[in-house]
Nucleic acid binder design. Structure first.
Lengths: 187, 187
DNA sequence: ACCTGAACACCGTTCAAGT
DNA sequence: ACCTGAACACCGTTCAAGT
């Protein structure tokens, strides 16, 4: 990449992060280009689709989250590891509003620039789920994509102004449906 | 309303139902007007906002669903009544994709044409929830809007191509987190 | 190799003119 | 009272022309 192109690329990402933080994952691409003071065609050259832009913004965090599911913390049980990771995952999808729906769409579309990252995330969660299932602390009839769906559902709840205040509580509700050990406590 | 206006109004609703069934709640309004063979300004005259159009399409079903929560079936327990109503509610929000997000937005916006209907629905659910809580078959720390949020979350899951096949299963998972009597069965 | 203005086909919204 | 075409300000996408 030429020096001036690299400069544009980096600057576009910085500006895109701001705009998407403000307006969500469906922010106007033209608006991003305007604020970055480049032609909107230049943005499309660097990021041919909206998904490609989001992929550039999310990839690092997505990889970290995926990696985190692979690290085995010997101190905690698989059930606790799953719970902690779920919390991180739901927190992550909350960085930009609307991103969770985009990720769910990407999961079903192999051509999406976000597909691979999302699939890796799904597999990482599946691994933690299986460990907890073997331990007997997670529902035995649940699959990897169910976990992704529930993370998505909680992300959607957090995206809704009406429900955001109760997002943490609803996390506990759904978590208690996934994990079986601790669910009896409050009942 | 003048006769010709009424004709347009009805025809627009019929066409809107088709188009929104195909394309979801965010379908192009211009497209609906085109297919109805009226000016798009005419559509806007009858339905000043997208929410107003959806309100006209949904009102009857929404009222039925709200009323259903008020009917006490003496045969079934409050817990079973809640479960049955939840199933109906999740089924309802699936009529048009994207409608559940619009409803969640409307719940937070008193100016939305859909606000009143959604608020009524929330209250209807709250009533069923309280009865089940008194009976001891629903989580005692849950509120009416939590129920709406979980209906919304399940609606969102049904809107995603990737998760739709597992929607019924995930309904059971979340239902088991709301109701407490039956949750122990599979564990 | 990279950037850009202009053009295209859309969208929802508003306005002034028709019957 | 109701409907409409035209205009407006947006959007994402494509193309041909510039350096």
């Amino acid at each position: 990449m030429r020096a001036d192109a690299k400069e544009n690329y980096i600057h576009l990402l910085v500006v895109a992060r701001d705009v998407i933080t403000e307006q969500g994952a469906n922010a106007s691409l033209r608006d991003i280009a305007r604020r970055a003071e480049v032609s909107h065609v230049t943005l499309l050259r660097h990021f041919p689709t909206r998904e490609a832009l989001l992929d550039a913004l999310l990839r690092k965090s997505l990889e970290e989250l995926t990696a985190k599911a692979g690290e085995t913390e010997p101190s905690s049980s698989p059930g606790e590891a799953l719970l902690g990771w779920l919390r991180d995952a739901v927190g992550f999808v909350q960085v930009y509003s609307g991103v969770v729906t985009m990720m769910a769409t990407a999961l079903a579309d192999p051509d999406s620039a976000l597909h691979a990252s999302c699939n890796n995330l799904r597999n990482a969660g599946e691994r933690l789920l299986k460990l907890a299932q073997e331990e007997g602390t997670a529902r035995s009839d649940m699959e990897g994509s169910d976990l992704f769906a529930l993370i998505g559902a909680l992300g959607w709840i957090g995206d809704q102004q009406s429900f955001k205040p109760r997002a943490e509580y609803l996390f506990d509700v759904i978590a208690s449906a996934i994990l079986v050990g601790r669910s009896g406590e409050f009942r």
